[in-house]
């Protein structure tokens, strides 16, 4: 009997999700033993045309990482949706937009300006990317940038979600185990829409640092606090920590080693908007009552939207800056 087909694809992403999958060590052999890899650009050379020629739903499962930033990303999302029985939004970009989604705070022109004209860029001819270029040999094309970054489930129907930037290797291994058990007939598929490979509480719940309703009168950046102690909650030591609003699943990896959680597992269960929950958390710990004094503390947080929504901007209630949303797609 032929093995069920597996695919993995990257849209607008950094490649970290692919590395995370390769990081599962010998577990990767289980993947190979139980699936035929039909398409995986990071690992093997299969052309888009060959995917187009496959029967619809002939791929059992596709792990789709990356956000939808370009026409090509969107085309691949539709194509892989059609060819796959199960489409998994894999990693923070596909689920919530992640770091690429932060570009939603600027309209497209602002992004081009920053990338091609800023003082750190050597570009005397003011070149800008174009979607078509007439070369002597023929027309060269480049997929156009869309006005805003979208998440996979804002474009096509998604069966499962695996959060994380990137998902932790032990969680990926656990997800593969479930899939393999399903293939072998030993387990049922999880309910559609389920979040796999993550916990169901917050990073704070897993974090072992002591919390003590302490109030803070200053928000600092980590390099400004040489005397961080190893026991107390980082937020209570004056560092912005996203643990209160972030889904568990990583065993509170960052606070364990003295770095604040930056929110990569996305909104915790029951949290509609990760940033809104973080605004609540910060407002609760700041120990000031006068508007001017409050402002002074908040000045310690120079980029609130980028901090509160570092991973979840594209999937937040507002999703993007008004000017970016108003542009033609």
């Amino acid at each position: 009997m032929s093995k069920p087909k597996f695919a993995m694809y990257w849209a607008s992403a950094c490649g970290g999700c692919e590395i995370a999958v390769l990081n599962i060590d010998e577990k990767i052999l289980d993947l190979d033993a139980n699936f035929e890899v039909a398409f995986w650009p990071a690992a093997m050379d299969v052309k888009y045309k060959e995917v187009e020629a496959m029967d619809d739903e002939s791929i059992l499962v596709t792990l789709f990482n990356g956000s939808i930033r370009t026409d090509e990303n969107e085309h691949m999302a539709h194509l892989l949706r059609r060819k796959s029985k199960l489409l998994v939004a894999f990693g923070s970009c596909a689920n919530e937009g992640c770091i690429p989604g932060l570009a939603n705070l600027s309209p497209r022109e602002g992004i081009f300006e920053c990338a091609y004209t800023s003082p750190s860029t050597e570009n005397p001819d003011h070149l800008r990317p174009r979607s078509a270029w007439q070369a002597p040999e023929g027309t060269l094309t480049l997929t156009p940038l869309q006005s805003v970054v979208r998440t996979l489930d804002q474009v096509v129907e998604v069966d499962y979600h695996v959060p994380g930037c990137p998902p932790e290797s032990h969680q990926i291994a656990a997800v593969l185990d479930v899939l393999i058990a399903v293939v072998k007939g030993e387990a049922e598929l999880p309910p559609k829409g389920a979040v796999l490979g993550a916990g169901d509480s917050t990073v704070c719940d897993e974090c072992t640092r002591k919390r003590d309703i302490k109030r803070i009168s200053k928000l600092s950046r980590i390099q400004e606090l040489p005397m961080l102690n190893t026991e107390d909650c980082l937020l209570e030591q004056g560092l912005m920590c996203s643990g209160p609003a972030t889904r568990s699943g990583c065993n509170s990896r960052c606070p364990n080693v003295g770095a604040p959680c930056i929110g990569c597992y996305g909104a915790a269960p029951g949290v509609l908007d990760q940033g809104a929950r973080l605004m609540t958390a910060i407002a609760s710990v700041v120990d000031e009552k006068e508007p001017a004094a409050i402002d002074k503390v908040l000045d310690g947080l120079p980029d609130p939207a980028g901090t509160f929504y570092r991973f979840s901007l594209a999937h937040s209630l507002l999703r993007a800056n008004r000017a970016a949303l108003a542009e033609k797609p």
Binding site: L105, G275, M279, L298, D303, P304, A305, G306, F308, L318, A320, N321, R322, A323
Partner: peptide
């Protein structure tokens, strides 16, 4: 402060 970054 946050809403300003969204253009509100």
């Amino acid at each position: 402060r946050t809403l300003a970054q969204f253009g509100i």
